[in-house]
Design a protein around this nucleic acid. Structure first.
Lengths: 335, 335
DNA sequence: GACTAACCTGAAACCGGTTTCATTGCAAGT
DNA sequence: ACTTGCAATGAAACCGGTTTCAGGTTAGTC
């Protein structure tokens, strides 16, 4: 706002009767400047309303003060929350995030990353995604890179993610502890590692409790509400007996819940239900949904802050955050 | 990806045995180039893996190929959808969106806009927000600006928004047509123009139907689920008689629906319910929520595309999109 | 008083593109 | 044959900063 944006460093220099170099030094505190000149420069910037041209800065200095963020519009509010966290984590650091969309397609992702590189971003924050690890390894040699919500071997301290196996285990165990043995699992997208890992946790909990695994209880769907209703319809029409459902995420749980009610089944009296994500709507569902709470905003924030430190070659820790069971009212003891 | 990112236009020029100028011409199709040289350049770019440096381009050409987008993290999925639309609308245009967060606070918004200007964005897309109109008018002289989801006098064809009065009117009328006369209105944030306008529509529909306005039926809240439960609790504890609810948005409707069920009231048998936004979860609520569908993604997309044309000084139309009543199962005829 | 080190400072090169300007070659017009 | 006009192209200036380099001061040391 204010002033016209075309005040340059040279204008400031003229006004303060110093050279461009000195203005630049004041601007970056890169080397010491006499007090009187410094104040003169500062005053000139004040009166002229100076806003440094980032393009010029980027070109000359080699850094763009921009972080590339690759997100996935998978529709799950989880990714939106991560992005929010990134924005929040970057606030006040001088860096701005540049979001591009990968759409969970390798080709799009690769293309999007190219765009970011063309814009000479100072760092790359990859949220989820499908880019093969060897490509990422190459990328990483070129640019500080942090991967969020995806587990990568050899990327210790460069990726932040939750323990989905553990989460699947905890959720399943919660149902088991309420007496359920016939637990339907509504899986997310087939190739999606999150889905696979939660499935592993489910199997592990079952095994530990001495419950036989029954593939009839597994529904292979995606992460949409529609998938939830289709799953329940399928289960019921196939005559599969089940007393509880562990859904791929909250959205799937909502869909399942609707389909159940269409079939005259109540939650939790007839069927218990556990979701995943703890998105905002979960607390206001009828009944409020018991779900696995992912600290999405926090993860995004942590990743962003770590990135800034990584760029500055400072020490940082990137801990895997725990997924917590958020107990509400959609799970009941089996009678 | 591929190659190191340090291939410059000069490298290409050397490789193709032409001058920088020619390469630039091929790059921008800015003037005709002999066919053989053009192919030579193209081949050189191919083999060397060239990605133009945007900072340099921006500095020299005066345009950054970046659009500043000011969003509001009001939490409503409506804003997320708008942002998604912007991303989609910009795909393939060469422009990238730079998102900053205004948090619905004037000071933050002003600051964020400064950041965008420092980055020399080619255009400004303001989504909602509180920036005073005279400040916007100044801004507009400097930079192509389009305002989304906010109505501004004198900004015809530079702002895209829905007719909230009409929307409030339609929603209310839908309830009235089902025999309801005691319709509770769960208002959004007090100063928020959307809330005020929908309120107007509500009043208008009431008046037209000859129903007396009763201020007891108005609950002043915000746009959160919690606000919905508090509203219903307040209504009931105050002993207010009502047979239907028009909620500020879907989230509020979810909260209201939960509170109703806590009080043993069924939807729609006892109380009818209408939301606003038609967010993804609405279709899978129990019962599926009748709501006013805002074409958020489409609006974002339209705004983005219009902005690109505006920058290129091309003709464009920026129509106010209609809000449509999405009839599902949360409204019943009053018996 | 001479010598050196530390500190300031301006001039100039540079970052990687775009754009203006001048030059050349060649076909068309008279 | 002699302009005239246009297409193609390279040289060079420029965009607005950062950074190197080379003085010029000033202070400290013997």
């Amino acid at each position: 706002m204010q002033q016209r944006g075309d005040t340059t460093i040279q204008d400031i220099a003229d006004h303060a009767r110093v050279s461009k170099s000195t203005v630049s030094r004041v601007l970056n505190k890169s080397s010491s400047v006499n007090e009187d000149k410094r104040t003169a420069v500062l005053k000139a910037m004040q009166t002229l309303g100076f806003e440094p041209n980032l393009a010029a800065r980027s070109l000359a200095g080699g850094r763009s003060m921009t972080l590339g963020v690759l997100t996935q519009n998978i529709g799950s509010p989880f990714y939106d929350a991560l992005a929010q966290g990134v924005i929040r984590g970057l606030a006040g650091t001088g860096y701005s995030p540049l979001f591009v969309d990968g759409q969970w397609q390798q080709s799009t992702e690769t293309e999007s990353i190219r765009t970011l590189i063309g814009r000479r971003v100072d760092g790359l924050l990859l949220i989820g995604g499908d880019v093969p690890v060897d490509q990422l390894n190459k990328l990483r040699e070129r640019l500080p890179t942090i991967v969020v919500a995806r587990e990568l071997v050899g990327w210790e301290n460069h990726c932040i993610h939750v323990d989905n196996v553990q989460a699947g285990y905890v959720a399943t165990k919660h149902l088991i502890s309420h007496g359920h043995e016939r637990i339907a699992l509504l899986r997310g997208i087939k190739e999606h590692p999150d889905a696979t890992q939660r499935f592993e946790g489910y199997v592990k909990a079952l095994k530990e409790a001495g419950i036989d695994f029954d593939s009839d209880l597994i529904y292979q769907g995606d992460f949409s509400g529609q998938s939830g209703v289709m799953a329940v319809n399928s289960l019921i029409s196939r005559g599969v007996h089940f007393t509880a459902i562990f859904a791929a995420n909250d959205m799937v749980a909502f869909g399942a819940r609707l389909a159940l009610s269409r079939h005259g089944l109540r939650v939790p009296e007839d069927i218990s239900l556990v979701g995943f994500d703890d998105q905002a709507e979960a607390a206001f569902a009828t009944p409020p949904l018991t779900t696995m709470k992912q600290p999405a905003v926090e993860m995004g924030e942590a990743a962003a802050q770590a990135m800034v430190k990584l760029i500055h070659n400072e020490q940082y820790e990137l801990a895997c955050s725990p997924v917590e069971l958020q107990i509400r009212e959609s799970v009941a003891r089996l009678r």
